[in-house]
Design a protein around this nucleic acid. Sequence first.
DNA 1: GTCTATATTCTGATAGAC
DNA 2: GTCTATCAGAATATAGAC
Lengths: 208, 208
Amino acid sequence: MIQSKALKKPDTTEEKIKEAARIVFYRKGYAYTRTRDIAEESGINLALINYYFRSKARLFEIIILETLSSFIESILEILIDEQTSIETKIQIIVSSYIDLIIKEPEIPTFIVSELRNNPNELLAKLPLRHKTARSVFSKQYKEAVDSGIIKEPNPLHFLMNLIGMIVFPFIAKPLLMKANNLNISDFNQLMQERKKRIPIWIKAMMDA
Amino acid sequence: MIQSKALKKPDTTEEKIKEAARIVFYRKGYAYTRTRDIAEESGINLALINYYFRSKARLFEIIILETLSSFIESILEILIDEQTSIETKIQIIVSSYIDLIIKEPEIPTFIVSELRNNPNELLAKLPLRHKTARSVFSKQYKEAVDSGIIKEPNPLHFLMNLIGMIVFPFIAKPLLMKANNLNISDFNQLMQERKKRIPIWIKAMMDA
DNA sequence: GTCTATATTCTGATAGAC
DNA sequence: GTCTATCAGAATATAGAC
């Protein structure tokens, strides 16, 4: 199950700082976040941030690595299960991801924006166990291609399309809302519609 | 035709600064760009940036507004033409956008990242003439729905899917390349494949 | 562990000579 | 219009008292 960490109740000072940092970093990004903002948000003293985390940069790295790995791992956990059919996987991924992102809508833009700066350095520190997940899914995907269920031979296109259809509207949200005079509940309504339709669209696409 | 402004040869000092600013802002974003970087990139003196543009913020606003409006207008120009069928529009948009973004791959992430900060303030300054374009396209789309060519009744879903399939891979590029051990020419190869396939996928989706 | 006060650094902007 | 030198402000990090 995809579970956000932002809902845990922080107890210790260290956890309070981390939770506050997550909130502020998600909203404003590293560059525009001042350690003072984190101190205010958490209600603790400014100096304690450096006492517990040594620097703003180190605190940030902890937050973004946790966010990235939980975001990626939660897809991989679904993809890796050999018992689940591809069609079911699609439904699970679409539904749980849209729900997650509606709860924490800043995450996709946060990841995209922050990864722009030092992607290689950051991604090198990610404990990725992609290999097994990829191989399980590739095998399953290849079988579907071989048996004629899916026409598109490249699983990368499949994944780009799937994740893109889920995530892109959230990334483009400001532009989308402005250009079409949507308020936030209009927008969320559209995303709810997509939970049902993306699996249908994906199926039709991959048949073509 | 979609034409990037980044290829113009700058003559005057003012244009040199603008071109350099565009390059550096695209690459690093507003926050990480120092006026000193722009001065170096353009080969002009630091003080001249303020002489010609008064502030870093004003220079930035000029760049991002130009980028946004040219990016948006170039879609609208295609959508607004009543002579072109929807199918042809899709092909034109897909093909010319992918080519444009391969030439200037930082633009999508630049727009997404920078629009996170003050979207309303910025978008309010955009001279949008969305109305006519939207109404022409909506009409054409509605006709296609009524005559049974397209099943998906909401043109917003159509546009989100179309633009998302084009743009999302570029936004997710660092993650995508890392997770699949792609180099830049592998990546561009994938995008070239998408020029042919997106129109087919879109057609299949909208039929479903 | 927590606080106040301060040192340090970085960077946008400008004064003033040419 | 262009340059050098410098100022002013902001923000991270730390020293040192409690």
